[in-house]
C-alpha cells in the first residue's frame, strides 16, 4: 500500500508550468492553539483542489493565509507566483475569493454588487458590462441580474458570490465551504458551476469542504485534521490506499459458488452469511460474478471504498455529515449501524 504522505508529494500535473499555489511549512498559531501545523502542498494550474476536513481542522485559516488575510506564523506560500507575505496586493489582484460567510450587499441588485466589485478590482471600464454578463451566464443567473439580492435564495446568493469571485478573471478561485448549508440540488448546481468555470475560464480552483461525497469532484484532495495534512492524492488513489472494491453475494449453494468463482480467477473469501470477492471495479464485476457463480444468487452487495473509509482509516474517526465534526469511532460503534 502506498504511503500518501503529503510532504513527499509534489505537483504532478504539468511539469513546465509554475504551480498556482505552492506552500512550504505553513503554520498558524493562535496563542497556544496551532490551527495550521506546518503544511506543504502545491496546486497545479487549472486544477480543482479540495481541502477536506472536519470543523476546526484549519481549512479556513489556510485559505485566509493564502489570500493574505492572515499572516502565517511561519512558513511560506506563493500564490499565482506572488509571495503572500511580501506582495499581498498582487496576490489579491490575481485571486477570486468566496468566503464561508456571505459578503453581499442585499440592498443592492446583483448587477450593482458586481459593478462595485469590478471597480474595487480595477476591471477596465470598457470591460465591466461584458464581464458582468459573462459571469452571470456562467452561474446561470442572467435573468436575475436586476433583482435585489435580498430576493435571492441562499443558493442563488452563493452562486452570485462565485460569479463575483470570477469577475476580475482571477488566476485562482478560492472557495471556503461553497456548499455548506445548502440543499442537495443546489449543491449539485454549484458543482456544475465550478466545473464550467474550470473548463470555460481555465481558472484554478481551491476549495474546502467537510462533505466527503463532494470532495470526489476534485482532482486532488488533501485531507486535513488538527492542522496537518494527513493524506493527499487523487480520490481514486486515496480510496485504493485503504482497500479494494468488493462484491458480496449470498447464493443457494455457497460452497459450489466459491469453487466456481475461484476457478474463474476471482479472489474470493467466505464471509459471514456468504462470499466476498475482491475486485478492481465493483460496478463492472457484478454481472460477471453473478454469471460465474454457476448457482442462483440471492443477494448482491457491491462496495467501493469511499472517502469516509479513507478518513476513518487515517484518523480513526469519521466526519459526521451534518455538522462536519469528527466523531470518534467508539461513539459510532455504540450507535446502531445505519446505511
Amino acid at each position: 500500500m502506498t504511503d500518501v504522505e503529503a510532504g513527499k508529494l509534489q505537483v504532478g500535473a504539468s511539469a513546465n508550468s509554475s504551480p498556482a499555489v505552492d506552500v512550504k511549512g505553513l503554520t498558524k498559531r493562535y496563542g497556544d492553539l496551532t490551527a495550521v501545523d506546518g503544511i506543504d502542498f502545491s496546486v497545479g494550474q487549472g486544477e480543482v483542489f479540495a481541502f477536506l476536513g472536519p470543523n476546526g481542522a484549519g481549512k479556513s485559516t489556510t485559505i485566509k493565509m493564502l489570500c493574505t488575510l492572515a499572516h502565517p506564523t511561519s512558513g511560506r506560500a506563493m500564490v499565482a507566483g506572488f509571495d503572500v507575505g511580501s506582495d499581498a496586493k498582487s496576490v489579491r489582484r490575481h485571486i477570486g475569493l468566496v468566503f464561508q460567510e456571505q459578503t453581499l450587499d442585499d440592498q443592492l441588485t446583483a448587477e450593482e454588487n458586481l459593478r462595485f466589485h469590478a471597480v474595487l478590482y480595477g476591471v477596465p471600464h470598457g470591460q465591466v458590462e461584458s464581464r458582468i454578463a459573462r459571469v452571470m451566464e456562467l452561474v446561470a443567473l442572467s435573468d436575475r441580474r436586476k433583482d435585489l439580492v435580498s430576493t435571492y435564495s441562499g443558493g442563488m446568493a452563493r452562486r452570485l458570490e462565485i460569479a463575483r469571485g470570477m469577475l476580475h478573471t482571477p488566476k485562482i478561485l478560492f472557495l471556503d465551504e461553497p456548499t455548506v448549508g445548502l440543499d442537495p440540488q443546489t449543491r449539485a448546481l454549484i458543482w456544475e458551476d465550478i466545473q464550467r468555470l474550470r473548463i470555460e475560464e481555465g481558472v484554478t480552483i481551491f476549495l474546502t469542504t467537510h462533505y466527503m461525497d463532494e470532495a470526489e469532484y476534485a482532482e486532488r484532495i488533501a485531507i486535513i485534521d488538527y492542522g496537518r495534512i494527513i493524506a493527499l492524492d487523487t480520490p481514486d488513489v486515496l480510496k485504493a490506499s485503504v482497500g479494494t472494491d468488493t462484491v458480496a453475494i449470498e447464493t443457494s449453494d455457497d460452497e459450489a459458488a466459491l469453487v466456481a468463482l475461484q476457478r474463474a480467477g476471482y479472489t474470493v473469501e467466505r464471509t459471514e452469511g456468504g462470499l466476498t470477492a475482491f475486485v478492481a471495479d465493483e460496478e463492472a464485476a457484478v454481472g460477471p460474478i453473478v454469471a460465474a457463480a454457476g448457482v442462483p444468487v440471492r443477494t448482491v452487495r457491491a462496495h467501493r471504498p469511499t472517502l469516509d473509509d479513507v478518513f476513518l482509516h487515517y484518523t480513526g474517526r469519521e466526519i459526521r455529515e451534518q455538522h462536519g465534526e469528527a466523531i470518534p469511532m467508539m461513539a459510532r460503534a455504540r450507535g446502531a449501524r445505519r446505511s
Binding site: 513546465n16 499565482a80 480595477g122 478573471t169
Partner: peptide, 30 residues
C-alpha cells in the same frame, strides 16, 4: 480568456497594471 491556457510568468506582464501610478490613481478615484 488569456489566463486560461498560457502559463503566466510570475511578476511578469500580469503585474504591470498595478505598477503604473497613473492607473493606480484613476483606479482609486473610481
Amino acid at each position: 480568456s488569456t489566463t486560461g491556457s498560457t502559463a503566466p510568468t510570475p511578476a511578469g506582464p500580469a503585474a504591470t497594471p498595478a505598477v503604473d501610478p497613473g492607473t493606480v490613481i484613476s483606479d482609486e478615484i473610481r
